[in-house]
Structures are given as C-alpha cells and as structure tokens.
Design a binder for these strands. Structure first.
Lengths: 203, 203
DNA sequence: CTCATAACCAAACAATCGTTTGCTTTTTAA
DNA sequence: TTAAAAAGCAAACGATTGTTTGGTTATGAG
C-alpha cells in the first residue's frame, strides 16, 4: 500500500502525459510534421484513443499552447515577484525567466515559438490571442524603462522578443546559460538609452 | 509576331514560375502544410508533372531555398557595394537590405526564415549550410564594429538576426519601412557600444 | 519531313492522414 | 455488489499524401 500509493500517481494524469508527448513532437517536428499516430504511439495507445481526450488535432495543439503560455507566464511572474532592481533589472529578470522556460525544463513553452498560428488555421485566432496575452507582460516592462523620447517602446519590445525567441535555433547546452544570455542581451540595449542622456548633455 | 514575341518570354521560365509559386505556398502555409498538388494546381499543371522539373518535394524546397539565399545575398552585397559610412553604417545598410528582401518583393527570401531545416529532414543539412553561408556576411560586418572588449560579437550578431527575422511575424504594410526599421534597430544597439567608452572614461 | 528531346497529361500506386464507430476493459462511486 | 462513467481497443472510414509509370503533345534542329 505504501509503494502502491506512490506508483499510482492519481486520476487523470494521462491527459497531461499526452500533452507532454505532443509538445515534444510539435517542438521537434512541427505541427504539420507530427501525426496523431506519432503522439498516440509514443503515449502507448492507439490513434483513436486520443479522441477521447481531445476532439481534434488542432484542439490538442491549443491545449499544449495554453499549457505553454501558462507555464512561461508563471515563470516570468514568479521571477518578477522577488525582483528588487530598477526597470532594466526587472526586464532582464523577465528575459531570463523567458529563456529558461524556452530552453530548459519541458517543451511546452518552446511550442509557442516553434509552432506559428498559420500552421493550424482552425486554431490560429486563439493561438494569436494566447501569444499576445503573454507578450503583453513585456509591453508593461518596456514602457517602464527610462527611455529617449524618440525611442519607440513597442519596437524595442518586438526587437527583444525576436532576439529571445530566436535563441532556441542556435542554443547549445554547455554554452552561455539563459541567465547569462539575458544579461548580455539587456546590456546590449541598456546603455543605448542610458548614454543618450550623456550624449544630450554633451551637446 | 510583334505580340507573339512578347507573350512568348523564352525557353524554360516555367521552372522559375513553379519556384515562385512554391515559395508563396511555403511562406504562407509552411513546408509540411503545402502539398505538391497545391503547387501544381496553382502552376496550372498536374501533380505528376512537377516531377519532370524536380525529383522530390524536398528538392523543390532546396531549389527555392537556394534562390532565396541567392537573392537576399545579392541584395545585401549590392547595398553594401555603394555604402560609404563607418562599420555601423554598413551594418545598418545590410540590415535594411535584409529586411527589404524579407518584407518586399518576392517570397524567396522569406522562405529561408519561415521554413526551418527540421521541417525537411532529408534536406536539413543543405538548408543549414545555405543559411549559415548567408549569415556569415553578418559575422564580418559585426566583427568590424568598434566594440567593447567584453562584448561577444557572435552574440550580438545572433541577437540582431533574431530581431530581423522576427519582423515578418508582426510587420504590417503602411507602418515603418524596412529602411526605418533598420535604422531604429541599429540605433538601439549602437550607442550601447559607443557610450560604454564614455562610461569608462567617467570611472 | 523527321526525329529527338522537352514538357506535360492521365491515371494510378501504396502509404499515411485525421477522424469515426462500436465494443470492451478498467475505474469509480453508491 | 452493482451500475455508471472513464478510458481505451480494434478496425475501419474517406480523403489526401508524395510519387511513379506510360503515353501524349509541343518544339526546334538537321
């Protein structure tokens, strides 16, 4: 009974198991490169059995996407919760959490940058909404920065997100850590704003 | 005969026609979201007829990819050929040409950022090689920059390329032009290096 | 005209796709 | 103990996939 209670995790973690496996396939083979049979086989069941848990392949993607957004959001929120620095430090903290979620741990967060809404037309609208909802966190963080009046904050945000979401394409384990990358990324942007003040004073 | 000579472009632009159509589909639906029949129908022929021009779907992608790399490379080279400024100006010029190729004109260049090698395992190696070959241009441009000793040039390059290749995901016609975007992107990075000198002198 | 080659059609191939259906097994709750 | 609900199996559905094959039409050179 003691062992039994441990080995028997509890009800309905089977659905989560499917989600995890699906996330892995979506990340490595893309949405249209993954078949229902790929996922079912890896999950140890038959293709049709998946339809007890999800009404369609696109609904499955949506569920994975939602889990991804939830996890990366929570990671960023948690990291920001005990962040004591200025606005730049907070942005860097968010970037580090974002990168950590993308590169380490599960595949859920990775899916939301690997699969683009166009890949699943029937779910595209909701995927975009989910993504935008998450990225709004960065809107607030960037707008809190002390910036030049002629710097477009939304452009800075898009530039940063582009750089961050590109990392999984070249990242190799053993290189710079997510924490280190976040610091370097922010450093490359930070002084651009700080120093413009200096430049202004000089002229 | 006068009209005839115009309507009859010349031998074998049919293959290029197919490439253009394929590029459009690959950009809008992805590689695995596009079928041979999609392309054949749009090209006004039957699916099997494509195999006279290309031995496989992946070979077709490879041909599109090559054309994309060729075009964006030439765009950057041409732009750099009559660039008179310093290293930062030259990098900005390259970025502008890169963005122009991605956002305006044909779909060829867009394919090389929309389709990732993983999508076509059989051609992955060659796709990666093509992409790396092009991106080396930026290696040289970034290494020519006057930078801090503690700034990693290859990281700056990856950051910039990430930001650039992300633009097609949010770009809307009527907003900032590619030229404007390139200027703003570089501005966000430039002073970070320039001003660190100032900071050093201050301390 | 002749003939070879280029370009394409027409039709099918086996394989795989997402999905459905009806039935069986397992688990849960009363 | 028993009935209901959850979970999955077995098997197939029609549609679509990339690709092949053999024959047909167009074109251009000798």
């Amino acid at each position: 009974m003691t062992v039994r209670a441990k080995l028997k995790p509890q009800v309905n973690n089977r659905r989560e198991h499917i989600l995890e496996i699906a996330a892995g396939f979506f990340v490595r083979k893309g949405f249209n490169g993954t078949s229902i049979r790929d996922i079912a086989n890896a999950a140890g069941m038959l293709p049709g059995s998946l339809y007890y848990h999800f009404p369609s392949k696109e609904a499955l993607l949506l569920a994975v996407f939602e889990e991804g957004v939830t996890r990366i959001s929570e990671a960023v929120d948690t990291a920001l919760a005990d962040s004591r620095g200025d606005a730049w430090d907070r942005l860097q903290t968010a970037c580090q959490a974002h990168l950590s979620a993308l590169l380490e741990g599960s595949d859920f967060a990775h899916v939301i940058v690997r699969v683009i809404p166009q890949d699943a037309p029937g779910a595209a609208e909701e995927l975009v909404a989910l993504r935008n909802g998450y990225e709004e966190k960065f809107t607030a963080l960037v707008e809190a920065l002390p910036m030049l009046s002629d710097t477009d904050p939304s452009l800075l945000r898009l530039m940063l997100i582009g750089a961050l979401n590109h990392v999984p394409l070249w990242y190799r384990e053993g290189g710079e850590t997510p924490s280190c990358l976040a610091r370097l990324f922010i450093a490359n942007l930070r002084f651009a704003q700080d120093c413009s003040e200096t430049h202004k004073e000089e002229t």
